[in-house]
């Protein structure tokens, strides 16, 4: 049975339509496997081979992958939530109620989005600490570390802008407190807050601004930097597996 299933799958992979989409076609050879990676616009960001050592859990704790996983969950649930949300006062809050009481699985969607957001922030911090303690920021990977810091900031801003969207007391005052911190910047503080909120107070303008930031600008920026982050892994010599062991690496580290 399993055998025949594999055969069917191979037949499918060998079909004209499949091959027009995925150039690699069926096959188990290393060439084929390399082609799968190389001929895919998303996967080609990665190198076709990786050191065996990096597969060990203790090396990375898979924290980067998990962070990306949380991001994927957030994108999917976020897009679904956008279908039920109006970024206006007080509709935003009644949309929360509708999500809770009449949208099928609405509570689940919101919960998953919320908890995944917290998880992503936590994972990003953990990723940063792990990378630091393993020394994976060392040349030639120093610029990828900087991109990582940018991604950390983007994650925080994404979470912070999303915090306002339910327009409940929790959201309103958390953002008020946050924006007051921004206004402490010398000279420019109030201008920064004005720019941030689209006004002097947290109101409907701020909600709209945060909505656009949360759903358009920041996710696009995050996707861009994630792509660069992944691509740089390949360009900087693959996943860092520990102390350099090859000549090439030793040369690079010198």
């Amino acid at each position: 049975m399993a055998r025949s299933l594999t055969t069917y799958l191979d037949d499918l992979r060998d079909s004209r339509v499949w091959r027009s989409i995925f150039r690699s076609g069926p096959g188990q050879s290393n060439l084929h496997r390399a082609l799968v990676v190389q001929s895919n616009v998303f996967l080609h960001l990665f190198s076709v081979k990786a050191r065996k050592r990096v597969l060990d859990f203790s090396v990375t704790w898979y924290l980067g992958a998990l962070t990306f996983g949380a991001f994927l969950i957030l994108v999917i649930t976020g897009v679904l939530l956008m279908l039920y949300y109006h970024p206006s006062v007080p509709l935003a809050y009644s949309d929360m109620k509708d999500l809770e009481f009449v949208v099928s699985s609405g509570v689940f969607l919101r919960n998953l989005h919320r908890w995944s957001a917290h998880a992503m922030v936590l994972l990003v911090f953990a990723h940063l600490a792990k990378v630091f303690y393993r020394g994976a920021y060392r040349p030639p990977r120093e610029f990828n570390w900087v991109i990582g810091v940018v991604l950390l900031l983007l994650t925080l801003f994404l979470s912070y802008t999303g915090y306002l969207l339910p327009w409940d007391q929790l959201a309103f005052w958390a953002v008020t407190v946050g924006s007051n911190i921004a206004s402490a910047v010398p000279l420019l503080g109030h201008h920064i807050r004005f720019l941030m909120l689209g006004g002097n107070l947290v109101n409907a303008n701020a909600l709209l601004r945060f909505y656009v930031l949360h759903c358009m600008i920041l996710p696009l920026a995050a996707i861009l930097f994630i792509a660069i982050h992944f691509w740089r892994i390949r360009k900087d010599g693959g996943l860092y597996a520990g102390a350099p062991t090859t000549t090439a690496e030793k040369e690079a580290e010198r």
Partner: peptide, 17 residues
């Protein structure tokens, strides 16, 4: 009470929201 709610607890009682 909370007219939008569709559960006994949320519709009749006092909650955080």
């Amino acid at each position: 009470g909370q007219g939008r709610a569709t559960t006994v607890q949320e519709a009749h009682n006092s909650t955080k929201a």
